[in-house]
Simulated scan of single mutants.
Amino acid sequence: MSVADLIAWVLLVLVAAYACAGGADYGAGFWDLMAGGAERGKRTRGLVDHAMAPVWEANNVWLIFILVVLWTGFPVLFQTIFSAMWLPLALAAVGLVLRGAGFALRKPTRRLAGRRVYGAAFAVSSLLTPFFFGTVVGGLVTGRVAPGTPASADAWSNKTSVIAGLLTVAATAFLGAVFLTADARRYGERALVGYFRLRAWGSLGVIAVLAGVGLGVTRDDAPYVYDGLTGGAGLVLVLLAAACALATAGLLYRLATGWARVTAAAAVALVVAAWGVAQRPYLLPTSLTVAQAAGASTTLRWLALVTLIAVVLVGPPLVLLYRLDTQGALRPLTDADLRRAAPGDGPGGPT
């Protein structure tokens, strides 16, 4: 295996990690959007805030890694994507900013009108951002984008792109519902356990319908990737993903929510892996291979070394953070906590 191939696999792993970690966050925002009015959705939004607060910023680390590896290891691919797909990527970037700002500011804001504005920014961006990311992926697999391709609406607004965008939103909704079911059970919110379990099953049904439609569209619009997904290693990965999704549905029925989170994340990660395997040896079917897109060999070797260092230094803290969060050991600070920690406070209270 060449260094370029190794970096390509690293990039695929990073995309899968962001799809799982970031996807669960986007899914939580999706259900925040669907929760209803202020009173009706109060408990749902409270759970979303409580569940996301410890990890939502850390989940975006995966996106930073993706961008660094992409522009350093495969500069031709980076230039091609960001030239031809600048509009949906710009919309996704705006969504990321609005989403983060909305989530960070809605809770400390005291005025109801302000909370509604920030909450709406968070929730709507949680829907639009994954949709635009999905349209970019859909446009890439069709072969409409190649080195030198100018920006055009057709590159990301075709049938495959729209289906990919909807599938991305549905997958994030599925992940979010599964993870929120586990959080509701951990916090003793029995009503919300049933609420999110039903939504996880419903999301899985939507994914199945969209996947069936997507296969039909891809067969005509992206034949190279379609052949890779319906045969060989790609088909094996797709079947494993389907098995994990069905296992998640069964585990949710048994309220084995810890394992359900694992199988749900595995299902999404396996779909990403199937997509990567299906288009080998191309990064852009059928115009740009891994070897053609790779940067200088010296740069790739240094990138491999930096990746190893990042795994050693960043990997364990992230694993520890996720483990503590899933065990319920982390919780956001309350107003009472902040008052107790205020400067000048002694053991007996304010001085």
Rank of each mutant, 00 (worst) to 15 (best):
V262C: 04
L47Y: 06
V277P: 06
G344R: 13
A101S: 15
V55C: 04
W31H: 15
G23C: 09
Y253S: 10
L98G: 11
L320M: 14
G138T: 02
R43M: 07
T257Y: 08
G139F: 04
T80H: 09
G349R: 04
A93T: 15
L321F: 02
V169N: 00
G134A: 00
L198I: 04
A341S: 10
I7K: 05
G346F: 10
G295M: 00
L140H: 01
A21L: 14
L77M: 06
A24P: 02
T257G: 09
P343N: 10
V277I: 12
Y195W: 13
A164Y: 01
V136I: 13
A164H: 01
A182K: 11
A120S: 13
G348V: 03
Y26A: 12
R186L: 09
R219A: 15
R254K: 13
M85Q: 13
I309W: 10
Q279H: 01
A182S: 13
R106F: 04
R45C: 01
Y224T: 15
S152E: 08
G165P: 03
R115L: 05
T168F: 06
R254N: 04
A153L: 15
D220M: 06
G176A: 08
G165Q: 09
T142R: 13
L237K: 05
D154M: 04
A329Y: 14
G138M: 11
S2K: 11
V268T: 01
I163H: 02
N158A: 02
L255G: 07
V193D: 10
G22I: 06
L204Q: 07
R197P: 01
N59F: 03
A293P: 08
R106E: 05
A51G: 04
L330C: 11
G119R: 04
G188M: 06
L128G: 00
T307A: 15
V68M: 04
I66M: 12
Y224N: 04
A265L: 08
D335S: 07
A211C: 02
A243Q: 03
T289S: 00
T326Q: 14
A222G: 12
A342K: 08
Y195L: 04
F65P: 03
L87R: 03
G295D: 00
R199T: 02
A247C: 13
A269E: 02
F122D: 10
W62R: 09
W259I: 06
F74S: 00
T307W: 12
Y187K: 10
D25K: 09
L33E: 02
V213F: 00
F122Y: 14
A17H: 03
V217S: 06
A113H: 13
